[in-house]
Design a binder for these strands. Sequence first.
DNA 1: ACGTTTGCAATACGACTGCAATGTATCGCG
DNA 2: CGCGATACATTGCAGTCGTATTGCAAACGT
Lengths: 191, 191
Amino acid sequence: MPRKVDHRERRELLADALMRLAAAEGLEKVSLRHVAAEAGVSTGMVQHYFRTKDEMMTFAYDMVTDRILERSMAASPPETPREVVRSLLLQVLPLDETRRLENHVMLAFLAYAAVKPSIASELREPAAAMRGFLADKLREAGAGHVDPERAAAGLLALVDGLGLQVLSQQYAEEQAVAALDAQLALLFGRP
Amino acid sequence: MPRKVDHRERRELLADALMRLAAAEGLEKVSLRHVAAEAGVSTGMVQHYFRTKDEMMTFAYDMVTDRILERSMAASPPETPREVVRSLLLQVLPLDETRRLENHVMLAFLAYAAVKPSIASELREPAAAMRGFLADKLREAGAGHVDPERAAAGLLALVDGLGLQVLSQQYAEEQAVAALDAQLALLFGRP
DNA sequence: ACGTTTGCAATACGACTGCAATGTATCGCG
DNA sequence: CGCGATACATTGCAGTCGTATTGCAAACGT
């Protein structure tokens, strides 16, 4: 049995347990032992697949960003640029359980990255990519009277902030969607 | 000597040490001993003024929110509603060292509150107050074509998101200010 | 067939944690 | 002048943490 395991699969199993734990009890409760218990395995196995805790953490973070991008690309049949922009931004908001989990992990990692410059740099590249993609779509949509780059950055900051407020239960999900749509209406005009 | 100490003052001294620690090394490094060391006192004294760690944490959080509100109220000579709005929102962005510290603490607490409903509820009230205040100013300014409540919520989410990105070094300070001004221009028209 | 590698379990270690208990010095008050 | 309350300091405890070490069974290469 031992030789025949998929490394990637095991690591994702453990990272999923980590996410559940982080979303339910906070990042501070994430320890090798707790992750092992949540996943129903021994702590030794966790150590086998992640040599250090930091390795486990960054793997989980990378997994989350990958999944968000993946999902954003997936659910996009040929639509107008405006619809693409909206559906992408909706993928970032915590509107269902998986996205809630992802937002929790992202938030925890952002708080961590705010203090560890090494993590912060790793985080900068995918964010810039997404901003560029958004800006292109905005240009296509021809929201002529605003700078696309700035508008893209503003939209991303907006959904980040909205996600923050939804997670901390200051704001309901529908209100967040409404706020996003209001901003899109401001940029594009009424649909 | 013992009887003649100002309780509030001592607690703020300790909370300041906590903030410095949280901003420099992350919330996870905040422990009774570290706070004591940072403040240059014994851990016993910390225990004397905060019976539990949670008590210390919530005090620090309350202190931060109080200071932000205080500062927002203070630096407001009679101005146009638009200027009031802008200066208030600028008070939230991490544009100098004290505000950077405060943003760090707020971020860490938000991540914490996303998991502890009890903290989240304590956090909801001042946020709603600020939103209401902002909405009033927007009404005064007569940005007629948008719902003031929604615009206020959107602006707060925007500065939250911008703060997040500035802290995690994805975005420079001037860019954040520019993004805010762009949004204000969108709402109010060119100054 | 067999030794090496891989997958995992169990345990031990030193550092650190929040917290309680205890001791001691200093003040206000009767 | 006492005497209780306040303001600390010191120490100890039970627990958790990340990590290193060791052990062992199963699969593979030869």
